[in-house]
Simulated assay, not measured.
Amino acid sequence: MWVLAGTLVAGLVVGVLLHRRNGRIRTTTPEAPSGLPEPVVEALAPGTAVTLVQISTTFCAPCRHTRAVLSHLAKRTEGLTHVDLDVTDRPHVARDLGVLRTPTTLALTSSGRELLRVSGVPKAQELLTALEPHLVPRVERGSHSQGG
């Protein structure tokens, strides 16, 4: 009976911890890139402020939801690109990046520096707010500051 109760409690604790981490943005230290895997380097968009590299697998249901969130965000945000990288047949890519679950989203500069990462489905507004300092500010046309 005690084993059953202990297993149940351990399962609940792990479940709560995983739920709390889902979609949470983790910023990374501003270091130079340390040898990104070639598929990731190829996915970086030159001349773009930030590339969102989504690490996915074929049979991952949350990956489809993440793809929808990130592609919509990239379409409406200047300086932001989204690339979905399926690692089903390339597990070494996930291992080299330290990715333990899919979906995981990496926000990378065009030089390959990691700005942040999100495990699970990101919350669009929180992600945009975290990326804002790294994106090109939009110039408002017809604003009052132009005079005349």
Rank of each mutant, 00 (worst) to 15 (best):
residue 138 R to V: 14
residue 30 P to K: 04
residue 84 D to R: 06
residue 8 L to Y: 10
residue 61 A to M: 13
residue 116 L to N: 01
residue 54 Q to F: 01
residue 118 V to C: 11
residue 112 G to C: 08
residue 132 E to W: 06
residue 147 G to F: 09
residue 15 G to Y: 03
residue 111 S to G: 07
residue 131 L to E: 08
residue 26 R to W: 08
residue 114 E to N: 09
residue 128 L to G: 10
residue 62 P to L: 03
residue 119 S to C: 01
residue 59 F to D: 10
residue 91 P to S: 14
residue 133 P to L: 14
residue 5 A to T: 13
residue 109 T to A: 11
residue 123 K to E: 15
residue 50 V to N: 10
residue 21 R to W: 04
residue 84 D to L: 04
residue 40 V to E: 04
residue 97 L to S: 02
residue 54 Q to E: 11
residue 81 T to R: 11
residue 123 K to W: 09
residue 147 G to C: 03
residue 133 P to C: 14
residue 134 H to D: 10
residue 44 L to E: 06
residue 92 H to G: 07
residue 51 T to L: 13
residue 18 L to G: 01
residue 104 T to C: 12
residue 29 T to F: 12
residue 51 T to R: 07
residue 95 R to C: 00
residue 64 R to E: 10
residue 68 A to K: 03
residue 88 T to Y: 03
residue 1 M to W: 13
residue 37 P to S: 09
residue 12 L to E: 00
residue 144 H to E: 13
residue 55 I to C: 03
residue 118 V to D: 11
residue 57 T to P: 02
residue 9 V to M: 09
residue 85 L to Y: 09
residue 42 E to N: 09
residue 26 R to P: 02
residue 26 R to E: 15
residue 24 R to F: 06
residue 106 L to T: 09
residue 5 A to M: 13
residue 29 T to W: 14
residue 3 V to E: 11
residue 80 L to E: 08
residue 92 H to T: 07
residue 123 K to G: 14
residue 51 T to V: 12
residue 33 P to H: 06
residue 9 V to W: 02
residue 80 L to W: 13
residue 66 T to F: 08
residue 2 W to H: 12
residue 135 L to W: 08
residue 50 V to G: 05
residue 145 S to Y: 07
residue 100 L to I: 05
residue 75 K to F: 08
residue 121 V to W: 03
residue 112 G to W: 05
residue 10 A to P: 02
residue 133 P to E: 05
residue 146 Q to W: 07
residue 107 A to T: 03
residue 49 A to H: 09
residue 95 R to G: 01
residue 30 P to F: 05
residue 72 H to L: 05
residue 62 P to D: 00
residue 37 P to G: 09
residue 63 C to W: 12
residue 113 R to N: 05
residue 7 T to F: 14
residue 100 L to Q: 09
residue 64 R to Q: 11
residue 120 G to Y: 05
residue 48 T to D: 07
residue 145 S to E: 12
residue 62 P to S: 00
residue 84 D to P: 00
residue 132 E to V: 06
residue 108 L to V: 09
residue 91 P to T: 07
residue 39 P to Q: 12
residue 139 V to Y: 04
residue 118 V to M: 08
residue 70 L to N: 01
residue 72 H to V: 02
residue 55 I to T: 04
residue 111 S to E: 15
residue 138 R to W: 05
residue 136 V to L: 15
residue 1 M to K: 07
residue 64 R to F: 11
residue 9 V to Y: 00
residue 126 E to I: 02
residue 119 S to I: 02
residue 39 P to V: 12
residue 14 V to S: 00
residue 67 R to W: 05
residue 57 T to D: 01
residue 23 G to V: 01
residue 148 G to P: 13
residue 50 V to W: 11
residue 33 P to Q: 06
residue 77 T to Q: 09
residue 3 V to K: 14
residue 36 L to N: 14
residue 22 N to Y: 11
residue 36 L to D: 15
residue 7 T to N: 06
residue 148 G to N: 10
residue 131 L to N: 07
residue 26 R to A: 13
residue 74 A to F: 12
residue 63 C to I: 03
residue 96 D to C: 04
residue 90 R to W: 04
residue 19 H to M: 03
residue 28 T to W: 13
residue 143 S to I: 08
residue 72 H to Q: 13
residue 108 L to R: 00
residue 115 L to K: 02
residue 41 V to L: 15
residue 11 G to R: 01
residue 7 T to G: 15
residue 38 E to H: 12
residue 33 P to N: 08
residue 145 S to K: 12
residue 70 L to A: 00
residue 50 V to C: 11
residue 2 W to F: 15
residue 145 S to M: 09
residue 13 V to I: 15
residue 79 G to M: 09
residue 54 Q to P: 00
residue 61 A to Q: 09
